[in-house]
Amino acid sequence: MTQLDSRPVPGPALQRRPARVRTLWILAGLVALGLLMIASVAFGSRIVPWSDIVAGVQGHDDNLGQAAVVKRIPRTLLAVVVGAALGLAGAVMQGVTRNPLADPGILGVNMGASLAVVTGIVSFGLSSATAYIWVAILGAAVTAVFVYAVGSLGRGGATPLKLALAGAAISAALASLISAFVLPRSDIATGFQSWQIGGVGGASYDSLRQAGPFLVVGFVVSLLSAKSLNSLALGDDLAAGLGERVALARGVAALGAVLLCGASTAVAGPIAFVGLVVPHLCRLLIGLDHRWLLPYSALVGAALLTAADVVGRVVARPQEIDVGIITALIGAPFFIYIVRRQKVREL
């Protein structure tokens, strides 16, 4: 397990993919992302002629069309960044928990971030975006640890069923606390409502700048944990036997995932199911080696969220459907598909 070349380590849990197939899929992913980014700038609830799109990209905002395009650029960037963060976080979480259903949304992490933000607004009068991010990350981290701890108590450790139930139950508990906070405050209710659905519509360069540092650290930590996730895939005992410090490796990887979830939730609201769907898809395309799987999940996550955002803007013209709703509508059936595929004993 210590050789330095980048070939995947063959093992019972690692399925090999021919290098050429992998390269092909990566290229396909990059091209798709590029096209989607162009689409995201070009299409929206307002139909803008090509000349204005080009002008808008160059920074002009002489008419409504060009102004719309100017606003679409940070929005596209945010979708890419948040999508990448969620896809990667999902892959890391599924690796850390060895659980096919792990997803920031399902584990209640998003709801934890939401409650933290609401508490911050209502009780401590927080208003700055940076403060939101800190609080959201804190909320996400606490919830993640708590849900995982509760879900892994008892027989069989963290089985998919126990984790999903712990996540759902704790989400429900947090949601009722949130409504207790929000309900008497009609002044924040509406704004919070739109944040809670999850969207990238309100994106600005500011929000990107504020989340930036957290996301960068999250990306780096997550990607660096690829090798230890490969060992963890073999089970804790075997990983320890291979010289991995299991608790430490798991903690570091989870920290990366939590940073990514918390920061993206803070800027875009809770967006569920991207973290669930993307890693499953990527495993099919590119194999089980986390050193390829993690970056590829980021790439596909970015593409998926950008696509969901474009779809949400186009299907309900002149209105927009928030991206969080689109991902849930795509993601939940996928979740059900995964559940149906599993054997009952494995749940």
Partner: peptide, 17 residues
């Protein structure tokens, strides 16, 4: 139970919309 959780997530987002 798990399928119910998935359906619930979808419906909740429909409600939010």
């Amino acid at each position: 139970i798990l399928i119910g959780i998935g359906i619930a997530a979808m419906l909740d987002s429909a409600t939010a919309y």
